[in-house]
Amino acid sequence: MTEHIEAGAYTFAYLDEQTKRMIRRAILKGIAVPGYQVPFASREMPMPYGWGTGGVQVTAACLVPEDRLKVIDQGADDTTNAVSIRRFFQRTAGVATTEATTEATVIQTRHRIPETPLKAGQILVYQVPIPEPLRFLEPRETETRKMHELEEYGLMHVKLYEDIARHGQIATSYAYPVKVEGRYVMDPSPIPRFDNPKLSGNPAIQLFGAGREQRIYALPPWTEVVSLDFDDHPFQTSKAPHDCDLCGAQDSYLDEVITDDQGGRMFVCSDTDFCEGRRAKGHAGRLGGDQKSSKTFANSFEGIWPGTEGAR
């Protein structure tokens, strides 16, 4: 990556000014056409693909020195991925960082939407591996582009309906497709479908960046986002049929965590900031509120709920 210095200036947030202008133009077009995937010329970043290079570029184009940045990876602030992205922006943009959802102005996320409701003035940046929701139905980009143009989304419904025929319900648990403002079908990134309702009517700006696939898309605040479903099989969220063992939350998304090699396990909030906030207020679950931290366990296990359908 060559450093492009403009008019004697230094760089802010790693990217050169011309690259940021290109990304910023793509973000604005994404805002103007919610759910449509805007192509952009993704840059080499000092981290491998799969580490959120698309999200990192979107964040870099949006950051101001006054921001407080939060980075989460499957709900946790302290995974290697989240820590290295946070440090990257501390170093290249000098921004403050936080683990508190309520204090963050920009939140970059992989695979979750925070449990704590977002608010106006916040930007949620999603890391996206595969932006095209129709890709597994049609590998050719020219064809999927035409399908979006003509709103030919029947195949997507067929796929979901095959789920129902096979499993008695829609088995898609992650990256559950949505329709934006009645127009574009969009991949919400691999968030659990538990999070889908939070996409809609959200007061924050939601931006999606796919580095390898070179796409940016967006949801302005208050955008209507509807999860695809059927009259006889309406969309349902799902989560593990338990309360959080640490904070007792009944309504948060849970990770199943192996606690020992005797088959011991527990269920804890995937959103570690949410869980710690509840415990700090005195809430306690089955194992009490004084456990060290759910993160410590979660890190020892790629602890995502494996998709068993316990709708509640």
């Binding site: 200036a9 802010f12 940021k20 101001v64």
Partner: peptide, 8 residues
């Protein structure tokens, strides 16, 4: 101060 001013 282009990088900062353009960001804001």
């Amino acid at each position: 101060e282009a990088p900062i001013q353009s960001a804001r």
